[in-house]
Amino acid sequence: MKIMTCPVNGPRAISEFAYGGEIRSMPDPATCSDDEWADYVFNRNGSPGVKREWWCHLPSNTWFVAERDTARDVVLRTYLYEGEG
C-alpha cells in the first residue's frame, strides 16, 4: 500500500488517510460574480500535475498539506497548513 507521511505521525499506509481535494482559494463571496462563485464551487483543476492537497490522518484527525504529482501518484512533500502560499 502506498505510503503517505503525516507531518505529525510519520509515514503510514495511505488507508489511514482521507483525501480532502486540492487546496483552492475561495473568492470573496461578497464581491465576486455569480460566475466566479460557480467556478469556485464546481470547477476543478483536473489536469495531471503537482497539486497542493488537503489530507487528513484519520486516527489522529490531523489535517495537513500534501504536494503530490497526480500523474505519477508520487507524494513530494507534506507539511502542516500555515495559510496560503
Binding site: Y19, E53, A71
Partner: peptide, 13 residues
Amino acid sequence: DPYEVQSTRSTFD
C-alpha cells in the same frame, strides 16, 4: 479509488 490519480496503476488494497 478515493483520491485523484491520472495513471492506470493498480493497488493491492
